[in-house]
């Protein structure tokens, strides 16, 4: 698990796309900022497949997963930034990347995660 994961307020699990969309709707209707992170490519042994999603609100609550739990902390941080600035971003995690070791993707995989704000 990533350092600081104890601060995460959510449940990492294989929530399906429909649940992610429903949760995004609920939070948006409550007036919260919302971002969705999606696994768009994988290489090697990555625990969650292409299309796996994580939805985050502006208070840091989240639902879903984009890995076995190892990069969620970093993804949520970026998602909160995306909620603030509205810019979509593509995150790259892999074993060749020192930062990936820091966030704990030690399973030998590589994963790209697209993070975008749910907008107006």
């Amino acid at each position: 698990m990533a350092a600081g994961s104890s601060e995460l307020k959510g449940e990492i699990g294989p929530a399906e796309s429909d649940e992610i969309i429903a949760q995004a709707m609920t939070w948006r209707n409550e007036g919260k900022g919302v971002a969705i992170a999606t696994v768009v490519s994988t290489w090697g042994s990555s625990p969650r497949g292409i299309g796996s999603q994580l939805v985050v609100n502006s208070e840091g609550s989240f639902l879903g997963s984009v890995s076995g739990g190892c990069i969620e902390g970093a993804v949520i941080t970026e998602a909160l930034d995306a909620i603030s600035d509205g810019q979509p971003r593509l995150l790259d995690f892999g074993v060749s990347d020192t930062q990936a070791w820091e966030v704990g993707l030690t399973c030998g995989g590589k994963v790209e995660v697209f993070v975008e704000r749910v907008g107006e």
Binding site: S17, D18, I21, A22, A24, M25, R28, I36, P88, F114, E116, R117, V118, G119, E120
Partner: peptide, 23 residues
């Protein structure tokens, strides 16, 4: 993702309609 798209995706999930979102 636009709010309009989010609403569409939520509706189609109920209606069992196949689609793809391209971003």
């Amino acid at each position: 993702m636009r709010s309009h798209t989010l609403e569409q995706l939520a509706e189609h999930a109920k209606a069992r309609e196949s689609h793809a979102r391209v971003v």
